[in-house]
């Protein structure tokens, strides 16, 4: 790592990823479009990925365990995006909507 970055601390990355995570969470809560919801979830996952990468760097992890986790999270995220989008397409085909406010069948 370049020397100008030596003043960086793990805590900065923690704050950054926490903020990112919260923004994603806010999006999940606030938005109604199911696709945007999925995107916000991706954002939250990326916040976590960033934190894991930072931990790998700052915790002296020779095995790169954190980065391994990032890979697996990416895999799961990709699978989730594929299935989630398929579901959204399906829902859209049946209801002509991607608005989660109208999907209130759970109470039945």
């Amino acid at each position: 790592m370049l020397s100008i970055f030596h003043s960086l601390e793990i805590s900065h990355y923690i704050y950054l990823s926490t903020v990112l995570f919260s923004i994603g969470l806010f999006g999940v809560l606030f938005r109604r479009n199911a696709i945007i919801l999925l995107m916000c979830i991706e954002l939250m996952l990326n916040a976590v990925n960033l934190l894991l990468a930072a931990f790998t760097e700052y915790m002296g992890d020779m095995q790169a365990n954190g980065q391994m986790f990032v890979f697996f999270i990416m895999v799961v995220a990709a699978a989730e995006a594929a299935v989630g989008l398929a579901i959204i397409v399906m829902v859209y085909r049946n209801t002509r909507k991607t608005d989660v406010s109208f999907l209130d069948q759970l109470k039945d």
Partner: peptide
């Protein structure tokens, strides 16, 4: 975020991301 990965010495992760 990929750029952040580069800063964090996770070059391959940056590309994959």
């Amino acid at each position: 975020i990929s750029a952040h990965y580069v800063l964090l010495n996770a070059q391959f992760l940056a590309i994959v991301n």
